[in-house]
Amino acid sequence: MRIRCIVFVTSVYDEPNEQNTQTLMKTYESNVRPVAGDIIDDPGFDSRFHNGYEVAKVTLNYSDDECLVSLAPLVTDRETMPAKDYIDQLKMTGWKVLEQ
C-alpha cells in the first residue's frame, strides 16, 4: 500500500513567506498502516525543529491501495534551526513541496 504522509512546516518566529512555509508530502510503500496517535520517524526530520510528528488523521482509499496520513508536530516552539533550512533538509530526503 502507498502511504502518503503530509506535513505543514512554518516558522513560529518569522512572518510566513514562501521560503519558510510549505506543505510537503512523502510517499512510502508499506504493509503497515499508521493509525492516529502513532509517531512517525523519517531521516529528514530534525529534533532542532520539533520532537516528532504524530499521526493526526488517516484517510484510506482501498480502490487505489493508498493511505493518506496527516502529521501534526508535537512541539511548535523548538525552532533552533531556520524553517527554510528544515524545508531544504526535508526536500533532500525525498519530501516534495505540494503546489498550492
Rank of each mutant, 00 (worst) to 15 (best):
I3V: 07
D65W: 10
C5I: 15
D85Q: 12
D77R: 10
A72D: 04
W95K: 10
H50G: 13
V69T: 06
L71M: 15
F49H: 05
C5D: 11
K57R: 15
Y28H: 14
M25A: 09
E29N: 13
I87C: 04
E18Q: 13
E99A: 03
V55H: 01
T59E: 01
D64R: 09
T27I: 08
D65R: 15
N61K: 13
E29P: 02
D88F: 03
K57M: 07
S63A: 10
I6T: 14
P43T: 13
V55G: 03
A36E: 14
Y28L: 10
L74C: 06
Y62R: 15
K91R: 15
A36W: 05
R48P: 04
G37R: 11
R48L: 05
S70Y: 13
K84I: 02
D46S: 05
G44E: 14
P73E: 09
E18C: 00
K26V: 15
T21V: 03
S11Q: 06
F45R: 12
L74W: 00
D88E: 07
V32D: 03
L60F: 08
L24S: 12
V97Q: 14
I3W: 01
V35F: 06
T59S: 03
Q100K: 08
V35T: 13
I40N: 01
V75Q: 08
Q19L: 04
Q19N: 09
T23R: 11
T76N: 09
G94E: 11
D64T: 13
M81K: 04
I39T: 14
F49M: 12
E54T: 14
V9Q: 00
P34S: 10
E99S: 11
V55L: 01
Q89D: 09
P82F: 02
Y86C: 02
T80Q: 05
P73C: 12
K26W: 12
F49W: 14
N51R: 11
N17Y: 06
M81E: 03
E15M: 04
C5T: 08
N31L: 06
I87P: 02
T23S: 07
A36S: 15
D38C: 15
V69S: 07
N51T: 09
K91F: 05
L74K: 12
A83T: 08
A56P: 05
D64N: 13
R2K: 12
V12G: 02
P34M: 09
L90V: 13
S47D: 06
R33N: 07
Y28S: 07
Q19G: 02
L90I: 12
S70F: 03
F49Q: 00
L24H: 10
G52W: 09
V9E: 00
P16S: 01
E79P: 06
K96M: 11
S70C: 11
I87Y: 01
E66F: 07
D88A: 05
M25I: 12
P16M: 07
V75P: 00
R4C: 09
M25Q: 14
H50P: 00
N61M: 05
Y86V: 06
T76P: 01
R48I: 04
N20S: 08
Q19T: 08
I39Q: 00
F8L: 07
R33C: 06
N61D: 10
E18V: 10
P82D: 00
C67T: 13
V97Y: 06
D88Y: 01
A83E: 01
V9H: 06
K57A: 10
D65Y: 14
Y62G: 10
Q19W: 01
N31Y: 01
F45K: 09
S30A: 08
K91P: 04
V7E: 00
K91Y: 05
M25K: 11
Y53N: 12
